[in-house]
Structures are given as C-alpha cells and as structure tokens.
Nucleic acid binder design. Structure first.
Lengths: 134, 134
DNA sequence: ATATATCACTTGCGAAATGCAAGTAAAATG
DNA sequence: CATTTTACTTGCATTTCGCAAGTGATATAT
C-alpha cells in the first residue's frame, strides 16, 4: 500500500513542502516520472489517503489534499525524517531540530495546515523545506 | 534505501516477531521470494541496519541482528503499525493496544531485546505477533 | 480572434526489478 | 554414509519503472 519508492515521498512533499498540484510534485527534486506520479496519485486517492478537487480559480489545475487518514501519517513521516537526519543525510537542519524538540507541535502544525485546507496560504507559518532521502 | 516493498517488512519481522534467521524471514507469511530476501539482507547489511554472525551452535545457521541504527527505526515501525491498525487491518490487537498505550515502553522492549543480543531467549517477555500490512 | 503556453495527464518502449522454480554447497542428523 | 537442513544462487518469464514524446482542455498574449 505504501510499499513503493514514491508514495511516502509524495506524502512527505505534501506535509513538508506543501505541494498540492501535479506540477509541484513533478518539480520536487527527486525526479519522479510523470506516468508514475499519475499512477501513485490515483492509488493514493483509491486508498483514501489524499483527495483531489478542481481549482476554482484555474480550470486546468487540480488541488491535491491529504485526508484525515493521510494526515494521520504525520507521526510516521516525522519519525522517518528524524531517523534519516540522525543516520544519513543533513536536510533542513532547522526543521529537523524543531521536529525533534517538539514532535507534537510539529504534527499539530501539519494537521492545522491541512484540515479544511485554508485556500492556499500556508496558514500559521509555512514550514521550511528539508529533503531527507529515507 | 528503505524505499522498497520488503526492507521495512524484514525489519518489522525482526522487531515484532523476533525473526533472526534466513528461514524465519522466508516463513514470515507475506511470501518474499528467496532471491529477493538474500538481496535485501545484503543491502541492509551494507547500510549497516543489520549485521550477521555465525551461530556457534550450528555451523549452517547465520543470525541476523539489528544494529543501533536499525533499532532506531523502532519509532518509525511503531507509528506505522499504529497507523495501519487504526486505518486498515486488525493484526494482533493486544500488541497494538500495548503499543498505543505506552509507545516508550514498547520501544524500550525492542531495544532491550536487541542490544548485545542475549543468546537467543527473547529476554524479558517475548512480544506477540501482529502482522499488519502497511 | 487566433496563436501560444500551461497544466494534467497518456502512450510507447527499452531497461531494470521482481517472482517463481529448480539447483548447489556446506554442515548437521539419522 | 545417505538424507536433511540451511542459506543461499541461477535462469527465465512477468511486472514495474523511467524516459521521451504526445494529447486535450483551459488560460494567456498578441
């Protein structure tokens, strides 16, 4: 279900980078192939981890959004990022520190940014952009 | 690095089922192919997540063991199991309850069971066997 | 109004990863 | 000394992946 190379990275990019459109996912630097991205988004929708809806301000765009089930993956992603930071690469050190110091606060931020998704402005303060490669 | 279908399942089987030998991994019911298992164990060793050493009591057997880096994946696995339990399947309900009620205690148990690995007896009390399919 | 650009994909195809069954070598057991 | 057990390897068919080049609908520029 999440046992492939890309699904969790897509969710991570949503949680940590605030990616919401197809194009943004493609640009998130790891370089997922466009056909694979379309396939994974379809499957994540089927699993009810994300949803999609048209952007009212631009008929071409679709906005992808985490469901409650998807938001519940925040603790998993948090632990993965912390593990990767401790043992592998050095992503965004500031965010990693914030996550380590107060996991709950970080996850609350993720939830707040995604439930009843407030238009597009990243509500409280946008979270910075680390890119650990777990 | 852990972005394939099997690596995390192997680690889960080590943490939750106490699997330590090639044969035990093969039997852990998901049905990994033998060549893939050999490949994944090799890679996990290369990544220093597990180690292997000969079993002194039986020259045919090898014992696989989590390194400190591998043990540090306990929080990730814990959150994954809890997520899967909440949203997908019903594995071992008792263990899931234990994990939810006291994550720290559960993870301490994992660490205790794997550091300086006490021969073979699962030290304190062996943890039961859930099999969530995240 | 028409041409161009953007967006979210799809299609085709070669390459790589996976799954399955059968085989092998070394050590243990009967 | 023959058979089992253990930890693999090998060969091959099938599936998945990655890349490049479309496609169709909508938006923007001239």
């Amino acid at each position: 279900m999440l046992g492939d190379r890309w699904s969790l990275l897509i969710i991570r990019d949503m949680m940590l980078r605030g990616a919401r459109t197809y194009k943004e996912f493609l640009q998130c630097y790891e370089g997922i192939a466009t056909n694979i991205l379309a396939d994974r988004l379809r499957k994540l929708i089927a699993y009810r981890i994300i949803t999609t809806e048209p952007d009212p301000s631009d008929g071409r765009k679709l906005t992808y959004r985490l469901t409650a089930k998807g938001i519940d993956l925040a603790p998993v992603l948090t632990e993965m990022v912390l593990w990767a930071a401790a043992h592998e690469d050095t992503g965004n050190q500031a965010l990693v520190e914030q996550m380590r110091e107060d996991k709950e606060k970080f996850m609350a931020g993720v939830r707040q940014r995604w439930v009843s998704s407030p238009s597009l402005g990243r509500s409280p303060r946008s979270v910075a952009i680390p890119t650990p490669s777990f």
